[in-house]
Design a binder for these strands. Sequence first.
DNA 1: AACGCGGGGAC
DNA 2: GTCCCAGCGTT
Length: 352
Amino acid sequence: MNDTKRFFTDCILTWNRLHNSRTMPWKGEKNPYRIWLSEIILQQTRVEQGWPYYERFIGAYPTVDKLAQAPEEEVFRLWQGLGYYARCKNMLAAARMISSTHKNQFPKTYEEIAALKGVGAYTAAAIASFAFNLPHAVLDGNVYRVLARYFGIDTPIDSTAGKKLFTALANEVLPKDQAGAYNQAIMDFGAVVCKPQLPLCSSCLLAPRCEAFQKGLTDLVPVKSKKLKIKKRYFHYLLLEQKGRVFIRKRTGKDIWQNLHEFFLLETSAPATDAALQQSAGFQSLLGHLDYKIVDSTAEIKQQLTHQTIYARFIRLQVPLAFNAPDGYQLVTEKQLQELAFPKIIVDYLQR
DNA sequence: AACGCGGGGAC
DNA sequence: GTCCCAGCGTT
């Protein structure tokens, strides 16, 4: 390891020792189950957002076998509002695997940890180093940023070449004998000092030898190559009500909100009024020949997702007893709604 | 290699 | 609006 790299590692450890005051409930935790749970919750999620979920999950499922035995709907309901719901599904699968295959003993090797559903390179390194002090460098958004700036690397972090380059570099500057403490330190450093916007360069120990700071490029690295395009979608939720109950279904397929529930959905390619909607083929085939009554309908409610903007309307209809459940839909009571997981936009509607 | 997946906070 | 968050699995 050359001098530039040695200086980097020393600074991160020094900063951690002298200036790091960031505290979180899972920090310093040695229980691999708790570490794993926190890491799953924190994937692409800010600490402040994940924190209360972590507390609730640990409260509800203090051990991995409790989680493994929990009903899926109950776990999804607890995850409701956190987003990226595949994490929840994979988390349950992993818990069940640990409970069965590993007999409730959390796996202790990097390979076994990485084999768990929902555990990728970052999460495996985090668990391996935090719980077992194994020498694997974490590579998350913080680490990419700190490394890219200090070493002045403009290779896109979301390219294959970039991942390979940064992985090698991260493991090079990792002090193998204190992997856990160092991994925690560099992420804290990225979150507190080397922030995405307005980094605290004037008080940064690395600044004298930071490539980006010396060249005034902190706002230009790290580089991301992919730019996302956002599409607009128009959802019309029909609350088909029958004797105080309503039809819902669980979302399946490849679309958003997998495994969450929803009301009967009609989607249009552009905004549509109640009148226009009632003329549509979807509506007609559902209710055209029946004596229904629209009780209430809302204006568009907007929900911004990463890749899409959802404009949803909610239309309450009383449908006659002659109306049969559409395929895949079930009739539930208000009370049952409280125990199932819904997308935020539906949760917001239901709360009003 | 590229894409899709939530929700929210900072600016 | 834009960026990005303790990323991952699928195609």
